[in-house]
Amino acid sequence: MYYLDLYLPEEAEYLIEKYGMLRKSYLQEHRKGLYLELVLAGKLNEHLYQIDEEYNQMMDRLVEQMKERQGVTEELKMQDQMAWVGKMNNIRNCAEEIVVKEIVYA
């Protein structure tokens, strides 16, 4: 009996953070075909790294835009630090919810 000598291509090592791991779990559970395609092509780690990078860039943009719209400035931080912290936490949570829906679960 003969067995094929199959192997997966070598993947580049990337530091995968929280949102890359969320994407991996999503692909494993809901998009099995795409997950297997990425694994067999040796591009899964690269894809997850790109998801992390896109997430960070989009978060930075959204947080800045929301800060401008809601009038959250350094002046507010100096005058009323607790109000500033509350608004910034709200902004970050809203931005994170948007980005996770748009990038991780897309």
Rank of each mutant, 00 (worst) to 15 (best):
K24V: 06
L38G: 05
V39K: 09
I16W: 00
P9E: 12
Q65P: 02
L48S: 02
I103Y: 06
K24D: 10
L15I: 12
Y3H: 14
V100R: 09
E54H: 10
L27C: 08
Y14H: 09
E17C: 08
E17V: 12
E46H: 11
G33L: 14
E10V: 08
G20V: 06
Y7L: 09
W84C: 03
L40M: 13
E46M: 13
G33S: 10
V99T: 08
D5Y: 12
K43A: 13
R31S: 12
R69A: 14
R23I: 04
Y14T: 06
K101P: 04
A12V: 10
E53W: 06
N56C: 00
Q81L: 09
Y55V: 00
G86Q: 07
V85E: 09
N93A: 10
I91G: 01
E11P: 12
V63P: 02
L22H: 05
E102Q: 13
V99K: 01
M82K: 08
G42H: 11
I51C: 03
M78T: 08
Y14R: 03
N93P: 05
E53Q: 09
E64A: 04
H30Y: 13
C94G: 11
N90P: 06
T73A: 03
Y55L: 03
A106K: 15
L40E: 15
T73E: 06
D80V: 07
R61T: 04
R61E: 01
L38R: 11
A12C: 08
D80Q: 07
Y19C: 02
K87W: 00
I98C: 08
Q79S: 09
M21I: 14
L44R: 00
K43W: 10
Q65M: 11
K24Y: 08
M1D: 11
R23M: 06
